[in-house]
Design a protein around this nucleic acid. Structure first.
Lengths: 236, 236
DNA sequence: CGATGCGTTGATAACTTTCAAATTTAGTGG
DNA sequence: CCACTAAATTTGAAAGTTATCAACGCATCG
């Protein structure tokens, strides 16, 4: 997999703090330093660049690495037997992914646009957790958070198209806290595969939301939330 | 799109765990056995009985306990704003649940039928993990497994009704490894709320599967898998 | 330009839900 | 043990939602 040149950068200070749940005082007892994982990954990792639409890892490959998004964005997905693609998650700036797999990756990961990713050997990652309880705790917290995010998403998938799209927009707005204008890093097809809908339904629903004055669509990739409470209501 | 059950009020509360024997247990080092967690829980926990349809814990209650199913079965679920119920998971004999929550339970748990459950104080549970790395690893592994199970379920939720029901039957067959005859511990409504379908669709799909000679339905709660490969194919 | 990729819009078909009713199963008291 | 009532499940017909198929608009790029 790691076919490209690993490049160590020293622009690492520019990396924003990860959104690691610092409050989670989970199984592993009282650590206080919630940022230690990201910090340590920087020291252990190699920086990799992935052009748009290139694979970071593939399904059923040995899960030897753990990743952190430094720039750009990443999608993980699975191709089903009939060719449909289900997108599992979008990883944005600062997110850590690939952590909860132990043997082989159960899904594939691709850069959605030109991306820089910090790559850390799983063995080092695990050794670290074994040595430092506060890091182990942080990893557990991250995994728990991923579990909760997934629970939320399951609730999403049983809803109607409109509810799914509205929830999706609110989720993205929350993760990219930039006022009310969101720059979507993913295509309509990505959104459709994330929400379990077709591209046409996503498109239609977005225009319906615009007609209903809940959002504005200056360009197809840019969404302005005009009426959050309406959106929240629609995301029921 | 009121697809699911409206809120049910018939659930009564069982006696809350008043006496939980949380004693220090001297598991230091050495415990490499994969069953050490269950073993230790037995020593630390209190046995509780919950009649059918009684609540074990409720949404937004402080998440003070971790549980293990000794007999019977348990469902966790969430009621959505419009009254729909989404079942998050079914827990059967031996399963541990409530582990990944740290502050408040994000969902409720009920006994699906008369159940005995081992209740362990979360604080003891956590202390144990902090003391014994092998237990901590076991807990992490269980959480990862839950995460993978949920990923599998997400894939399920974007599929057609027939695919969902077929997958569900195969999942249950796998978890209750008793040849080809499964005794379902849950009602049609439970299945519907688990799969994000209506009770009518579940029922129709089951009869369709029976007509297609993939399964047999001696009673509504008993399912015999007649043709696993057909089922696997249908679960796409 | 003319191709190509992405997004939108329209018409129709397929699937699932909703509403309604029949049928079976389970629980209770005589 | 049987009869009766309530609950759960199945079945049917109609309505609603989303997918599918097809065409069009609109950018970018050679």
């Amino acid at each position: 997999m790691l076919t490209q040149t690993a490049v160590r950068t020293d622009t690492m200070r520019a990396i924003p703090p990860s959104r690691v749940a610092a409050q989670a005082c989970g199984v592993f007892g009282g650590a206080t330093e919630a940022q230690s994982l990201s910090q340590t990954m920087l020291l252990m990792g190699a920086m990799m660049s992935y052009p748009r639409n290139t694979e970071i890892f593939g399904e059923d490959e040995p899960a030897d690495y753990v990743y952190r998004v430094i720039s750009g964005s990443v999608r993980t997905y699975k191709i089903m037997s009939d060719g449909r693609r289900q997108i599992d998650a979008f990883y944005l700036l600062g997110d850590i992914f690939g952590m909860q797999f132990d043997d082989e990756y159960p899904l594939s990961a691709e850069a959605m646009n030109d991306a820089k990713v910090l790559v850390v050997k799983r063995s080092s990652f695990n050794a670290l957790a074994g040595r430092d309880m506060s890091i182990a705790q942080e990893i557990f917290a991250l995994t728990s958070r991923e579990l909760r995010r997934m629970q939320k998403r399951m609730l999403l998938l049983i809803k109607s198209a409109q509810e799914r799209v509205a929830s999706f927009l609110l989720e993205m707005a929350e993760r990219v806290p930039s006022s009310n204008a969101i720059e979507l890093p993913m295509s309509r097809q990505d959104i459709a595969d994330y929400l379990g809908l077709t591209i046409e339904t996503v498109s239609r629903t977005l225009t319906a939301l615009e007609t209903a004055a809940a959002i504005e669509l200056p360009t197809s990739r840019r969404v302005v939330l005009r009426n959050r409470s309406a959106l929240t209501r629609l995301s029921a």
